[in-house]
Amino acid sequence: MSYKIKFKGPESLSGKEFTYCPGCHHGIVHRLVAEVIDELGIREKTLMVAPVGCSVFAYEFFDVDGTVAPHGRAPAVATGMKRAMPENVVFTYQGDGDLAAIGTAEILHAANRGEKITTIFINNAIYGMTGGQMAPTTLLGMKTTTSPYGRSAENEGYPLHMAELLSNLPGVAYLARTKVNKPQDVLKTKKMIKKAFLAQIEGKGFGMVEVLSTCPTNWGIPPVEANKWLEENMVPEYPLGVYVDKVGDEK
């Protein structure tokens, strides 16, 4: 009798310790992306574009070629890479400030061109790196350091639903919104991330997974409670599910 490993960190992570706060979901999603890269056997041809925000160091956490784009421009950088290297696999990893505020034009047009890239979109309803300011995805009534009295529709508009917006574009081949606050959701999310990569690999078009995530530090809620807060507050605002799937089921 001997022990056989059932669960162990994936090869496609560099092994560097994450710079994220305790309980932050970035780390879970990083691990899932790396597991998918391992399973697809694409580590040696994957190119990563990290954003500006908490995950600005993400290019160091993956054992693949990587760069950091200017704030919000990751889909444009990835477009240039993919057009130059169509045989490679290119993905962007972006937060809600990066993708849904300053980079709205770049993500919309990359998706609309059916750019054969994959985007992992972390929606935690707040700006993390800069210290908890309002994001376009901040919930109505939610207090942040730049909406100290709570976000109001009258002054700041409504939470921006990126998955729904992009789902109207014919260039999109896979699009889903998910969460990782429970083990079952983590497993489901991994399957979605895999499909978002397959959309690119099979040449079908643009793939994106929006992951509802916690920011315990800037929400001011301990990690375990933050998972519950996400369930009770974010899920009702941001419906989960698969919005576009032209990839189909795995054979």
């Binding site: 574009v49 200017p70 240039g80």
Partner: peptide, 8 residues
């Protein structure tokens, strides 16, 4: 930024 990506 497309230039940045392609040049890299």
């Amino acid at each position: 930024n497309m230039l940045y990506g392609a040049a890299s």
